[in-house]
């Protein structure tokens, strides 16, 4: 972003990478896949790099408002300085905080989640799927992330992307508004489960395995970690792949 700004250019969109997308080795692959798509369709985008900070979502939901405010206010300073208008986030938690919580602090942007942008690009014909791609007829189940689904009411855009991939979508019993959390939200990602019978991600992974799907499609880096771990625990990591939607588009088009 800094470089573009120095050259006096205004990018079409700012890609908010997020902590997981920046540092988690699995989520980095999603980040790279998404960038490949943006490049392939010729969208001029920027990232903030080291000027991006955690949105503050996990701190706020853990109860630590001070740290949330510190992050949010710094991010808003940065975003406003670059006069950012439109943001795409590859993480539903970043997306939610940027979209729903920053306005009260003085940060007003048009915010979309990457799955929404992907569907838009497919609908506009800017992403063309190769006919008979690698997912044709494959059984795919889609895991609704809480922060895209129940919290922001986005159920159809990701399913629209899957449809375009020509896969055979099988729904889990708990889907859409009834979707079961992967277990990572509310800063659970950073702590051990409270005492109980089972981990939440195991429960959800078992449900996904029960559909007989070969692929679990996700839209959130935390769901990605939780469900991949769940598959490992069930020793299904070689049979059932957990992919983000953007990775699937890249694979089918061999970009």
């Amino acid at each position: 972003m800094a470089e573009m700004s120095a050259e006096g250019k205004e990018p079409e969109i700012l890609f908010w990478v997020g902590c997981a997308g920046s540092f988690d080795s699995r989520a980095q692959k999603v980040t790279i896949a998404f960038c490949k798509i943006l490049n392939a369709v010729g969208i001029e985008f920027a990232i903030l790099g080291n000027e991006e900070q955690c949105t503050g979502d996990p701190a706020r939901r853990a109860g630590n408002e001070f740290i949330f405010q510190m992050m949010a206010l710094q991010n808003i300073e940065t975003l406003n300085m670059y006069k950012v208008k439109k943001i795409v986030a590859a993480c539903p938690h970043c997306f939610n905080t940027l979209k729903n919580e920053y306005p009260a602090l003085g940060g007003n942007y048009e915010v979309v989640h990457h799955t929404q942008l992907l569907q838009e690009l497919i609908n506009q014909g800017r992403i063309k799927m190769e006919a008979g791609g690698s997912f044709k007829g494959k059984k795919i189940t889609y895991h609704d992330s809480c922060y895209m689904g129940r919290v922001n009411g986005v159920y159809e855009a990701p399913r629209g992307v899957l449809e375009a991939l020509d896969g055979d979508l099988v729904e889990m019993k708990r889907s859409r508004t009834n979707g079961l959390c992967c277990g990572a939200g509310g800063a659970q990602m950073w702590k051990e489960d409270e005492p109980g019978d089972k981990r939440i991600n195991i429960e959800r992974a078992e449900e996904a395995i029960g559909t007989g799907a070969e692929i679990v499609a996700v839209n959130c880096p935390f769901c990605m970690t939780m469900l991949s771990d769940g598959m490992k625990a069930a020793e299904k990591q070689d049979d059932i792949m957990v992919y983000d939607l953007s990775e699937m588009i890249v694979m089918t088009n061999k970009w």
């Binding site: 920046s22 080291n50 955690c54 996990p58 701190a59 630590n64 990602m189």
Partner: peptide, 30 residues
């Protein structure tokens, strides 16, 4: 108070601006 597991989270966000304490650049992947 609160879960002790959250302390490293708070510390890395407060000190490093990231949910995990990392010593590399945020755009190293790029």
């Amino acid at each position: 108070q609160g879960p002790s597991d959250w302390l490293p989270l708070f510390n890395s966000i407060e000190n490093g601006g990231s949910a995990w304490a990392m010593s590399v650049d945020r755009d190293k992947w790029a």
